[in-house]
Design a binder for these strands. Structure first.
Lengths: 347, 347
DNA sequence: TTGTAAGCGTTATCAA
DNA sequence: TTGATAACGCTTACAA
């Protein structure tokens, strides 16, 4: 790697001091316009690019925020990241993205690296395998601003931004009940994740309030991998009395369940109703189109970034916990009544 | 933000010099085992975390590589990134991810920021709007290792890793011809992108070799946005003699075209055959399942990282250009013969 | 308006 | 095996 031009080089060539160059580059007020222009011209000419490392070292601020997500190829996460970026750029921060690949060790590693690089703050969505939270305790003890995002945990004492999973699950479940489904199952996520707990709670609440019997066999969890989802969906459909509707923890899981059901030769939504969560664009492309719970991802990203940067800039240690409303999007996969009417099937 | 512990603090508490502490932390050879243990113990106790900024400043190496992609929510990119990460971690590098959102200014901004942060090397996949390459000239002039990835350009004089678009497009087109399609169209990408040019070339080659007439009206380009794809597909299907098969530049574009065709009431693959590119997981979930050209993404990521890191570590200025073979995956959307046989339709 | 000098947290080069 | 000390490239008092 070739030598980078430094302010020293510029100073030398112009026979001024480094502080003068520094002033010119930062367009500080106390500098002669002519010297400033000369510096700027030379900098341009020599292709000077400031060394952020040096600057950060002295200022103790990197103007960098980090975001760690379990995976990138879900619209949910990538779109949230876009929200974070938009807000961050607006306020003069750059965003460093990392993915933990749903792996605990990698999550720890990523955080360590970001702390070492002295990022000004972190936004994290927990990996599904994260059950120990001591790496977050460290961050908090250090006083590094932290916002948990979507995949949160009550074991971590930080600001949080999440979607209202209870409410969303409630709406989804109630919709299934209204459509006349009787044996409704929930294909949930790992118990250690709070989103799993909340969506389960919304499900249970809706069932109870509507006097629906709860069958323990219909309360299944998977580890959020496609493989396990397929396995658990198969188990579910192999029960003596299989469910006639499934509320899945998210869209990829719902999609696996749909595959299983179609392979058995059952019709969705007629024999089995299905609702997912996240409202990934793919929902629109499936046959039947998958009903799902929409989450305001961009907005969540905005809020997370706002809270984080406020915390970075004010010495505002106040912990904020934001819960954004979701929105049930009804499509074909749960529209039993519509299907019956349209196809003139008798029940 | 609280004060970070530094080696100075450790040195003070242990009444040794900073260089001793530094040696202990880096487990240098020339140090007494006992002092080393004492240092390590105290560091652990005080929750010392090294300041990578300072280290990088003096070493002129960050052990960070950056990757910039147009967007994150395509399996193609996120999976390539995973490949880059795997290789990078293996060799002691961390990976910083950024997305340009297909925006030229943001691409320039991202690169600037990475250069300012003195990343050791960059892997870049061009945004679809990038037609000016001077920001890359600067990088190259600086001697910063650079590998272009998938979305490359011959205007940039750097190492490159890409899939064999000509070959992939050729195979796809030839397959359509073999299936008996007669009026084959290509819904391509913007001309400034080399992948567009290559896939077009593969298409043309296959048509010519098989003595298929080329209808200029069937050679359409879109800007890779869903909206434009829909528009162009609609135009294509509104022609007096619409095509009976489309080879699309990638899967999202193919999906938009499929939607349009289905809305008109035509059957895929019977009335119109369709093939995409990238082999996103969604291909399997569509109805009909979308034929596509598979790209070895993880492998491409590995190679890109290898080439980059080799370049970083050796002062190996040799430019490498790797073209990895693709693989046509035939599914329902292009299987006209199969469809005819199965449904006993007469042609 | 400019320059001098100290310092940010490391590593690296000498001596001791 | 250890300790001074000078860098790294920048900002920031303070002095001129």
């Amino acid at each position: 790697m070739k030598k980078h031009i430094t302010i020293k080089d510029l100073a030398l060539k112009l026979s001024v001091s480094v502080s003068t160059v520094s002033r010119a580059l930062r367009n500080a007020p106390d500098i002669n316009l002519k010297t400033k222009e000369a510096v700027l011209r030379l900098a341009e000419e020599l292709d000077y690019e400031p060394n952020a490392l040096a600057k950060s070292l002295v200022q103790k601020r990197t103007h960098l925020i980090g975001i760690i997500v379990p995976e990138l190829d879900m619209q949910f996460f990538s779109s949230s990241i876009r929200g974070v970026q938009e807000e961050a750029y607006k306020r003069g921060y750059n965003v460093l993205i990392a993915q933990s690949n749903e792996d605990y060790e990698l999550e720890v590693e990523n955080i360590k690296s970001m702390v070492a690089s002295r990022l000004d703050g972190l936004i994290v969505s927990l990996s599904r395998k994260t059950k120990d939270f001591s790496h977050f305790d460290k961050i908090i003890r250090r006083g590094i601003p932290l916002v948990l995002f979507d995949r949160t945990s009550k074991n971590i004492d930080s600001s949080k931004v999440e979607a209202d999973g209870v409410e969303g699950a409630y709406a989804a479940t109630e919709h299934l009940i209204e459509q006349g489904y009787k044996r409704i199952a929930h294909l949930g996520g790992p118990k250690n994740l709070e989103i799993s707990q909340k969506r389960l709670k919304g499900f249970m609440d809706a069932m109870k309030i509507n006097d629906m019997p709860i069958n323990e066999e219909y309360l299944i969890t998977c580890d959020l991998s496609r493989e396990d989802a397929r396995l658990k969906a198969t188990e579910l459909m192999s029960l003596q009395k299989p469910p006639d509707a499934i509320f899945a923890i998210n869209d990829p899981i719902a999609i696996e369940a749909m595959k299983v059901i179609k392979e058995i030769g059952l019709n969705i939504p007629f024999h089995v109703g299905m609702i997912g969560f996240n409202d990934e664009p793919i929902c629109e492309l499936l046959e039947p189109k998958l009903s799902s719970v929409n989450i305001p991802t961009i907005k969540m990203g905005h809020h997370a970034a706002q809270i984080l940067i406020d915390q970075i800039e004010g010495d505002n240690t106040r912990i904020v916990h934001e819960v954004l409303p979701c929105n049930l999007v009804i499509r074909e996969s749960s529209n039993k009544r519509g299907f019956i009417k349209q196809n003139k099937v008798s029940v």
